[in-house]
Simulated scan of single mutants.
Amino acid sequence: MPETPVLALSGVSAGYGGAAVLEQVSLVLRSGERVAVLGRNGAGKTTLVQAVFNLGPRVAGSVQVMGREVGGWPTHRIARLGIALVPQGRGGFPDLTVMENLRLATLGGRPGTWTLERVFMLFPRLAERRAMLSSALSGGERQMLAIGRALLTQAPLLVLDEPSEGLAPAVAEEVIVTTLGRLAAEGQTVLLVEQNLSLALRLCERAVILAGGKIVFDGASAALLAMDGMLAEHLSV
């Protein structure tokens, strides 16, 4: 039998009030894949993430996570199927320490290989700052903390929403490229929503372009790089 997709969207439309943001979006993500979702501001990228997690927009169509139809489910129940979000803006609890933020992520009890020790090995600076309030961290360190929290949930699918936003290029290279490169080597399934084209296509073997709430490209990253017209029209490259 064919493998059940980790994430499957079919005919998904989503919006707020009377305004449609996504229209008839279909997307399948299989275990071990790394897929980049690209597009200009307002293309519907963040609404796509919110639709998957039921974080606000009205949603029509089918959203399946780990083979389960999750339409209308509360966000925490969707997450427990095995999908973790690294949100735009990092998230986290500013009045808690680094260690307290990380420990909270372990409370779900899902079995897996990620431990506090492994997160500190991946991000040594978090180990150095474990007693600091997360509000005192730099932007790059807060992104490390957000990724560390997601990993500690042991989720098979990691969704990152604009992780390079607000980071200097050198910091994005260190935190995003290096980290996701290591996770890719371990077979981590990743959905990366990103405006940084170069970063996204280096990390993901497959790319999806959203424009006007619709998918206008879904294929190999290498093929997209050769399509100058597509890049210019939809990504302003």
Rank of each mutant, 00 (worst) to 15 (best):
P94F: 06
P163F: 12
V171C: 13
T106Y: 11
G112T: 10
L104T: 00
S164R: 05
L160I: 08
E162C: 05
W73R: 14
L180T: 09
R90L: 05
P74C: 08
Q188P: 14
A105H: 11
R130A: 09
R149L: 10
L151M: 04
G187S: 13
G112P: 07
T115E: 08
L183E: 12
R129E: 09
A131L: 14
V119D: 03
R110A: 10
D95P: 06
A150K: 04
S134W: 01
E69W: 12
L81H: 06
L180K: 01
M132E: 14
E174H: 06
A184T: 13
F93A: 04
E69N: 15
G92H: 04
P111Q: 09
E100I: 00
R68C: 12
M121H: 15
R77Y: 01
R182Q: 11
N101H: 04
S134K: 07
A170C: 11
L167N: 06
I147G: 08
V171A: 00
T113Q: 13
L152V: 03
P169K: 00
L81Y: 04
P169R: 08
R110M: 10
G112S: 13
L192M: 11
Q88V: 02
G166M: 12
E174Y: 13
M132K: 14
A150G: 02
R182H: 06
T75S: 13
V159H: 12
G61E: 02
L180H: 05
A105W: 09
L85F: 09
I83P: 11
T106N: 00
L96C: 07
R142T: 03
P124E: 02
V193G: 09
E100M: 01
S138W: 07
R125A: 05
D161R: 02
G187M: 00
